[in-house]
């Protein structure tokens, strides 16, 4: 009908589960996010991400002396006429930057009714949709232990349902080994790109090492720590008295007597753990965001847009 008619937002296929996280309401929110993203990045070409390469782009970058073999069309004739020097114009090379979204699917993400994993899936789906809408290539990896289940990068907004289906299949279970999992992700991604890690980072050994590893492999890691408020700061009424603490990822049983002071000490220790992760990430230029499941996921997406540098 018209070349300028807006494309209708994707609609969910019929017959979905009523408890489907990617329902009609979710899709409506995605459509809204797409509009917001367009406003934020108006004037830019699609799939135009500045890489560090200098090549055949359109935006002038620098001059250099002409050497034989250079394309003569790149000679700067104006300089030659004024100064008599043969300089070649260099342009920034434009190329699409792959986006890899890593979702932590360990058992710790499934506690408290799985609110953290649910939140992570929604954020992952929303980021994917916005990325696909900007003609980026988006791949998703779900990690548990050192294992990694990967959806290869796809392009085009119509592929969003593949991402939905992939995310639907994943259930949180098993231990956390972020370092091993990120090593697998880095190994699978031959070309560096943006890697968004959605996790609670409840990994005493390798939470930061995993991010650092991605950085070493020339990826741009973005850490989004998803927390449940009542896990970070438990209410004394819920965990008071003589209890056995059972780790959600198995293995550890500990008999303790919890009182107000013990719960307060845990809250302080949790805060220290998160601050240490944030401090280490920022000192190495890794974008870090702390997200509570209490805030709507679309608010988190906009925060990522504005402050996270995910989309530039």
């Amino acid at each position: 009908m018209s070349l300028f008619r807006r494309k209708a937002p994707p609609t969910a296929p019929a017959g979905r589960d009523a408890r489907d996280p990617f329902d009609e309401a979710f899709l409506s929110q995605l459509a809204l996010l797409e509009v917001v993203a367009r406003r934020m990045f108006r004037g830019r070409n699609r799939a135009e991400r500045k890489t560090r390469k200098v090549g055949s782009g359109l935006e002038f970058a620098d001059h250099r002396d002409y050497t034989p073999g250079d394309d003569i069309r790149n000679l700067d004739w104006n300089v030659y006429m004024r100064l008599g020097q043969t300089l070649v114009r260099l342009f920034e090379e434009d190329e699409d930057l792959p986006i890899r979204i890593v979702v932590d699917a360990s058992g710790s993400m499934g506690t408290s009714g799985g609110v953290k994993f649910e939140y992570a899936r929604k954020v992952a789906a929303a980021l994917s949709y916005v990325g696909l809408a900007n003609l980026d290539r988006v791949g998703i990896s779900c990690v548990r232990g050192a294992a990694c289940e990967t959806l290869p990068p796809v392009r085009g907004k119509g592929r969003i349902f593949r991402i939905f289906d992939f995310l639907r299949r994943i259930a949180p279970e098993g231990p956390t080994d972020l370092r091993g999992a990120c090593a697998r992700v880095a190994a699978e991604s031959t070309e560096p790109g943006l890697v968004v890690v959605l996790s609670d980072f409840y990994d005493a050994d390798g939470a930061f090492d995993a991010l650092n590893l991605l950085r070493f492999r020339r990826h741009e890691p973005v850490a989004v720590q998803i927390l449940a408020p009542h896990e970070a700061n438990p209410s004394p009424d819920r965990v008071r008295g003589d209890v056995t603490l059972l780790d959600a990822e198995g293995g550890v049983l500990r008999d303790v007597t919890l009182d107000d002071r013990a719960v307060a000490r845990f809250a302080e220790a949790h805060e220290r753990f998160c601050r240490a992760l944030e401090r280490n990430a920022r000192t190495r230029g890794i974008t870090y965001l702390r997200a509570s499941v209490a805030i709507p996921f679309d608010d988190l997406i906009l925060r990522l847009f504005r402050t996270g540098g995910i989309l530039r």
Binding site: A204, D242, L245, L246, A262, A269, F273
Partner: peptide, 19 residues
Amino acid sequence: KMRRRRVVVPFAALWEQAL
């Protein structure tokens, strides 16, 4: 032995550190 209530926590190591 006292019967204790089991509480599933996502990060038992952090509880151990605190307790």
